[in-house]
Computed example of a mutant assay.
Amino acid sequence: MRMRISDCTGVILAGGLNSRMNGTNKALLDVGGVSVIQRTMSLFDEMFGKVLVVSNTPQDLLELDVKIVSDIFPERCSLAGIHSALFHADTPWIFVAPCDNPFLSREMVELVLSHRTEGATIVVPETEKGLEPLCAAYSRENLKLAETRLAEGRYKIQSLFRNKRTRKVPEANIRRIDPDLRTFFNINTPEDYQWALAMLAQDGVV
C-alpha cells in the first residue's frame, strides 16, 4: 500500500447550483454503483490523510463519512469554495477537485503534486483550452490573497495566479497519463451524464 501524502488535504468542491441538471444534485449521480462524489472521496481517502468537502447544502451529503464545511463568503463561486478549504485545512497544501468529475485518477493527482517547486504556491494543469484551476494544488499561503480578492469582488480563481508563484503542468505531460483529457470533463447536463456512463462502461467501470 502506498503511503498517504501527509502535507496535502484532498478537497472536493460541491457548491454548484445544478441548474442544468433539472435540480438533480450532480455529486450524487450514480456511476458504477457509487455516487460521483464517493468515487472521488475513495481516491482521496487512499491518497491523503485528510479530506474535506465544501458544500453550502451539507444536508444533502450527510451520508458521506467526511468533514463538510461551507463557504465563509456568501458569493456562490469556486474561489469562495477554495477560500473555505484553505481556511479549514491544517496541511500546507490542498488539492482541489469538483464533485461532478468521474475521471480523476491517482496518476493525475500525483502528476500535479510532483510539479510543486520551491516558491510556487499554485500548481495548475494547462491545455490548449487554458488553465484547469479545479484540478490543481494550492498552498495555504493563498488564504489571505483569496480573502482579499473576494472582498474586492474579484471572483475568478485566476485572480490568485501570479507568474512567479504559479507552476503550470504542460499538456504534453498530462496527455501521457490522460490522452483524451477526460480528467477535466464535468457533468453539467443529462447528456454529459450519459456520455460519462458510456465512457466508464467502455473502460469496464460500469
Rank of each mutant, 00 (worst) to 15 (best):
M1N: 13
M1F: 10
S6E: 15
D7N: 15
C8R: 08
C8E: 10
T9N: 00
G10R: 08
V11W: 10
V11L: 05
V11H: 12
I12F: 11
A14Y: 06
G15K: 01
G15Y: 02
G15R: 03
L17H: 07
L17R: 11
S19Q: 14
M21H: 02
N22S: 15
N22L: 14
G23S: 05
N25V: 13
N25T: 13
K26L: 14
K26M: 09
A27H: 04
L28Q: 04
L28F: 11
L29K: 10
D30Y: 01
V31G: 01
V34W: 00
V36P: 06
I37N: 11
Q38T: 11
Q38E: 15
R39S: 12
T40N: 15
T40F: 03
M41Q: 08
M41L: 15
S42G: 09
F44C: 09
F44G: 08
F44K: 10
D45G: 00
D45I: 00
E46I: 04
K50V: 07
L52A: 15
V53L: 14
V54S: 14
S55V: 11
T57A: 13
P58K: 06
Q59Y: 10
D60F: 13
E63G: 14
K67P: 01
K67F: 02
I68K: 10
V69H: 00
C77R: 12
A80G: 08
G81C: 04
I82K: 05
S84D: 06
S84R: 11
L86E: 08
F87R: 11
F87G: 01
A89H: 10
P92S: 11
V96K: 04
C99K: 02
D100N: 14
F103C: 05
F103H: 05
L104I: 14
M108Q: 08
M108P: 00
M108I: 06
E110Y: 00
T117P: 00
E118C: 04
T121L: 11
I122M: 09
I122F: 07
V123H: 05
V123S: 09
T127R: 02
E128N: 05
E128L: 08
L131H: 12
E132V: 11
P133R: 07
L134G: 06
L134V: 09
A137V: 03
Y138H: 04
Y138V: 08
R140M: 03
E141H: 06
E141V: 09
L143K: 07
L145G: 00
A146P: 01
R149T: 13
R149P: 09
E152Y: 09
E152L: 13
R154K: 15
Y155F: 07
K156P: 01
K156Q: 11
I157C: 03
I157L: 04
I157Y: 00
S159Q: 09
L160S: 01
F161W: 02
N163D: 12
R165F: 10
R167C: 04
R167P: 00
K168P: 01
V169N: 02
N173P: 02
I174F: 08
P179C: 09
P179T: 06
D180M: 00
R182N: 06
R182W: 13
I187H: 05
I187Y: 07
I187W: 07
N188Q: 15
N188E: 15
N188F: 10
P190G: 03
D192S: 11
D192E: 02
D192I: 07
Y193G: 01
Y193R: 03
Y193N: 00
Q194W: 07
A196P: 01
M199I: 13
M199E: 14
L200K: 12
L200C: 12
D203T: 01
G204C: 04
V205I: 15
V205A: 13
V206S: 08
